[in-house]
Deep mutational scan, measured.
Amino acid sequence: SISSRVKSKRIQLGLNQAELAQKVGTTQQSIEQLENGKTKRPRFLPELASALGVSVDWLLN
């Protein structure tokens, strides 16, 4: 799922939720909701993929 991929990649990069949120241009709460499965397809998906160094396709599939 996107939530597990985001969380595992974030941890692999040594980032906390607030640091990832800053790179993406969103809030820590938005990252938390995404990782908890409350958000399925965030509006900041391209920025998120870029910050994590992955493709949008990788996040979604």
Rank of each mutant, 00 (worst) to 15 (best):
S1R: 09
S1K: 09
I2F: 13
I2Q: 03
I2W: 07
I2G: 03
I2S: 03
I2N: 02
S3N: 07
S3Y: 05
S3T: 06
S3W: 08
S3V: 05
S3K: 06
S3M: 08
S3D: 06
S4I: 12
S4E: 15
S4Y: 11
S4K: 10
S4A: 14
R5K: 11
R5F: 06
R5E: 02
R5P: 02
R5V: 06
R5M: 06
V6A: 08
V6L: 08
V6R: 03
K7S: 08
K7Q: 09
K7P: 02
S8K: 12
S8W: 15
S8Q: 14
S8L: 15
S8G: 09
S8I: 10
K9P: 01
K9H: 05
K9W: 04
K9V: 10
R10I: 04
R10N: 00
I11P: 00
I11F: 08
I11G: 06
I11D: 06
Q12G: 08
Q12I: 08
Q12L: 10
Q12S: 15
Q12W: 08
L13A: 07
L13K: 06
L13V: 05
L13N: 05
L13H: 05
L13T: 03
L13R: 06
G14D: 05
G14W: 03
G14E: 05
G14R: 07
G14N: 07
G14F: 04
L15E: 01
L15N: 02
L15H: 03
N16K: 09
N16F: 04
N16R: 07
Q17Y: 08
Q17V: 12
Q17K: 08
A18I: 10
A18N: 10
A18G: 09
A18H: 12
A18D: 11
A18V: 09
A18C: 11
A18F: 13
E19W: 04
E19N: 06
E19Q: 12
E19I: 05
E19D: 12
L20E: 02
L20K: 01
L20H: 00
L20F: 04
L20A: 01
A21E: 01
A21F: 00
Q22A: 15
Q22S: 11
Q22G: 09
Q22K: 13
Q22W: 10
K23E: 07
K23N: 06
K23L: 15
K23Y: 08
K23D: 03
V24S: 08
V24Y: 01
V24D: 01
V24W: 03
V24N: 02
V24L: 08
V24T: 09
G25L: 04
G25I: 02
G25N: 08
G25S: 05
G25T: 03
T26L: 08
T26A: 08
T26K: 05
T26S: 07
T27R: 06
T27W: 04
Q28K: 13
Q28W: 11
Q28T: 14
Q28I: 15
Q28C: 09
Q29S: 11
Q29L: 13
Q29R: 14
Q29P: 07
Q29V: 11
S30C: 15
S30Q: 15
S30D: 14
S30H: 13
S30V: 13
S30P: 02
S30Y: 15
I31N: 00
I31A: 02
I31T: 02
I31H: 02
I31W: 01
E32Q: 12
E32S: 10
E32K: 12
E32H: 10
E32G: 06
Q33E: 15
Q33P: 01
L34V: 13
L34E: 01
L34K: 02
L34W: 03
E35P: 02
E35S: 02
E35A: 02
E35M: 03
E35V: 02
N36M: 12
N36S: 14
N36F: 08
N36C: 09
G37T: 04
G37L: 04
G37C: 07
G37Q: 05
K38P: 07
K38F: 15
T39K: 09
T39I: 15
T39D: 11
T39S: 11
T39Y: 13
T39M: 15
T39Q: 10
K40E: 13
K40R: 12
K40P: 13
K40F: 15
K40M: 14
R41W: 15
R41D: 10
R41K: 11
R41I: 14
R41H: 13
R41N: 14
R41Y: 15
P42Q: 05
P42F: 15
P42H: 09
P42E: 04
P42S: 07
P42I: 15
P42G: 05
P42Y: 13
P42K: 04
P42C: 14
R43W: 15
R43G: 12
R43K: 14
R43L: 14
F44K: 06
F44H: 06
F44R: 06
L45K: 00
L45H: 01
L45I: 10
P46E: 12
P46R: 15
P46G: 11
P46T: 12
P46I: 13
P46A: 14
P46L: 14
P46D: 11
E47N: 09
E47I: 08
E47G: 08
E47R: 14
L48P: 00
L48W: 01
L48T: 02
L48N: 00
L48E: 00
L48R: 00
L48A: 02
A49P: 00
A49E: 00
A49C: 05
A49Q: 01
A49F: 01
A49D: 00
A51K: 04
A51M: 06
L52F: 04
G53T: 04
G53I: 03
G53K: 07
G53S: 07
G53L: 06
G53D: 08
G53E: 08
G53W: 04
V54L: 04
S55E: 09
S55D: 11
S55W: 04
S55L: 06
S55I: 04
S55A: 08
S55F: 04
V56C: 09
V56R: 05
V56Q: 09
V56F: 08
V56S: 06
D57S: 13
D57F: 12
D57T: 10
D57G: 11
D57N: 11
W58G: 01
W58D: 04
W58C: 03
W58T: 03
W58K: 02
W58I: 02
L59W: 02
L59H: 00
L59G: 04
L59Y: 02
L59M: 04
L59C: 02
L59Q: 00
L59V: 04
L59T: 00
L59D: 00
L59N: 00
L60E: 07
L60K: 07
N61A: 12
N61L: 09
N61Q: 12
N61Y: 14
N61F: 13
